[in-house]
Simulated scan of single mutants.
Amino acid sequence: MNRFDDQTVLVTGGAGGQGSSHVRAFHAEGANVVIGGIDAGRGAALADELGSRAHFTRLDVTDEGSWSAAVGAAESVYGTLDVLVNNAGVQNPPVPIESTDQATWSRILDVNLTGTFLGIKVAAPALRRAAGGAIVNIGSTMGLGGTAHYAPYVASKWAVRGLTQTAGLELGRDRIRVNAIHPGVIATPFIHEPAAGATAAIADFYSPEPFAIPRLGEPADVTRLLLFLASSEASFITGSEYVIDGGLLLGPALQAAVA
């Protein structure tokens, strides 16, 4: 028996680098997957590739009405919604705070923070109707410390941490668990392609060589942890945060000379 047989999972940003990894893994574990996103071409193509038990729905995470339509589609097509993965996110071009325009600030917080808030708000009644379930918010190691030139993104991911804990408190008695994963540098277009308005990608000035596990993370590294947190195996875990960064936050792994 698969871990997610007869369950329905909605993944936002579901056709992206990490999102598509999550969608494929849930589907392989028996879930009905609802691929939420604004790129209809990629989302529909992924649903067609997976075939049965996969459905694309257009979802603008900054719009509450769009959320209501997506959650309604999940229940209409598959009967219930059992798991929500708040995966959609955007990055700001790297600039100092004093050079960050308000429109950029608002856009990053709208997607990364308000999108997560609206997902919890709209999905909670559906998860309650399903007699419980799980919400997993995808944060970032940038939400665990300051990072120069990324103020909007850092602020949004710090706020997701408090939102996760608050939702965990509010929804626990309804058998709805809420947890967060904070990935480090994961090898996806998000890392290898410049953010809108930027000329360089994060990968252009980051090397994992000094760190404990000297490689970039892979989407599957995050997906494996996500599957655990969304499953009944994690039934006693809520309001918690999990870092998956290969030791990035530990700092450089300096090797002592051996005589």
Rank of each mutant, 00 (worst) to 15 (best):
N2R: 13
F4L: 09
G13Y: 13
G14T: 09
A15V: 10
G16E: 12
G17M: 02
G17R: 07
G19I: 05
G19S: 08
S20E: 05
V23N: 08
R24A: 15
R24D: 10
H27V: 01
E29K: 07
A31K: 15
A31C: 06
N32C: 11
V34T: 05
G36H: 03
G36T: 15
I38W: 06
I38C: 13
A40G: 09
A40N: 07
A40L: 02
G41D: 08
G41I: 04
G41W: 01
G43A: 09
A45T: 01
E49M: 04
G51F: 07
R53P: 14
F56D: 13
R58V: 15
R58Q: 14
D63R: 08
G65S: 13
S66I: 11
S68T: 15
S68Y: 05
A70S: 13
V71R: 03
V77C: 04
V85Q: 05
V85L: 08
N86H: 04
N86P: 13
G89H: 08
V90P: 03
N92G: 00
N92R: 02
P93Q: 01
P96L: 06
P96F: 07
I97L: 15
E98W: 08
E98C: 04
A103P: 01
S106Q: 14
S106D: 15
I108L: 01
L109I: 10
V111E: 15
V111F: 05
N112K: 14
L113T: 15
T114M: 08
T114Y: 08
T116E: 11
T116A: 14
F117C: 04
A123Y: 01
A124T: 14
P125M: 12
A126G: 07
R129T: 11
R129F: 07
G132R: 05
G132Y: 02
G133K: 09
A134T: 10
N137L: 04
T141F: 11
G143K: 01
G143E: 00
G143I: 04
L144S: 10
T147F: 08
H149G: 00
Y150V: 04
A151N: 02
V154Q: 12
A155P: 08
K157V: 01
W158P: 03
V160C: 09
T166H: 11
A167V: 10
A167Y: 15
E170Q: 14
L171E: 06
R173S: 06
R173Y: 02
D174G: 07
R175I: 01
R175M: 00
V178K: 13
V178W: 15
V185P: 03
I186C: 02
T188S: 03
P189L: 07
E193G: 05
P194W: 09
A196D: 06
T199D: 14
I202L: 14
F205V: 15
P208A: 07
E209Q: 14
F211Y: 15
I213S: 02
P214Q: 10
R215Q: 10
G217F: 01
E218C: 00
A220M: 05
T223K: 00
R224V: 00
F228Y: 15
F236M: 07
F236Q: 05
T238Y: 01
E241L: 04
Y242V: 11
D245V: 12
G246H: 06
G246K: 11
G247F: 06
L250Q: 13
Q255C: 06
A259I: 08
